[in-house]
Design a protein around this nucleic acid. Structure first.
Lengths: 148, 148
DNA sequence: CCTAATAGTTAGGCTGCCTAACTGTCAAGA
DNA sequence: TCTTGACAGTTAGGCAGCCTAACTATTAGG
């Protein structure tokens, strides 16, 4: 198999994969349409669920710029879902903490979204579910490699 | 295996799948960051590449509302990438056509995006690529079932 | 100390999505 | 024929989320 053939195969797979991704974006959007928290808000809170984080860390993990993260944090704070506290080690920094209300809201949001996807997974055949399970690590790796 | 166990497994898979999707959204965004056309613009033009379509069809295929599709079409028209023509069969309707410039721009955009993904696919192992290939139909089915 | 780097906020702007209200056209029945 | 409801699309207004540029406050190195 020549290099050119290999490239064509890869590009064909890329095109099909891209098509799937495009639909996945709609899907994510539809998952969010029902709930009260947006994708970004859930993503931000999922970061904070592990540990309090600086605004800059939130931005980096979420793949957005610092001012955008500030904006998200301000909205979440207004909703009582997070708190901004001083960082004892650095007076410039702000440590964003999840509140109890935030933890509860996050758990609900995660559960709702997961259940909705689980419901759709239940409709698939066992083989189809296995195919998805088997592909998840590769997809994650692919996504990371593209993001770099 | 009880129903409850089954549900827990599904929800676990759902959570992992959702995590992958979330990253995929960043990926799509990063694919768009380089090019001159946005995701929505490429999606719209890909529809029109098959055949001229009404604004309502564009909206339906793109998963957005009609006014949003009008907006997209107006911008594409201003950029010289599409044309709006009267529908000979229905004076209410507008048929959106891709221009030659649009076709060229679309081909370039598609090629760039596909090559970028192909480059990342090339880094994966053969097994990983096979896993992704095998999962694509299932993922598409899952996405459709969630979108419905 | 001064100065450059760093953390975050504020200001202003853009895109893309939405709903509501409107114009113009079609089609079906009194 | 004429009216009336359905339909295609546009316009108007608003909101979320992202961006860059410019600013304040703090830290740390020379």
């Amino acid at each position: 198999m020549s290099d050119i053939e290999l490239d064509e195969e890869l590009i064909d797979l890329a095109a099909r994969y891209r098509d799937v991704l495009r639909h996945a974006v709609y899907l994510i959007r539809s998952l969010d349409a029902n709930g009260e928290l947006s994708t970004g808000q859930v993503a931000t809170m999922n970061i904070l669920a592990l540990a309090p984080a600086r605004v800059g860390d939130v931005a980096r993990h979420a793949g957005i710029r610092v001012p955008s993260a500030t904006e998200q944090v301000i909205k979440l704070e207004a909703a009582g879902l997070v708190e901004r506290r001083a960082d004892p080690d650095d007076a410039r920094a702000v440590l964003v903490h999840l509140t109890d209300a935030g933890r509860t809201a996050l758990a609900t949001a995660n559960r709702e979204r997961n259940e909705r996807i689980a419901g759709a997974l239940a409709v698939l055949s066992e083989d189809e579910r296995s195919a998805i399970t088997a592909a998840i690590p590769a997809i994650a790796k692919l996504t990371n490699s593209l993001g770099a």
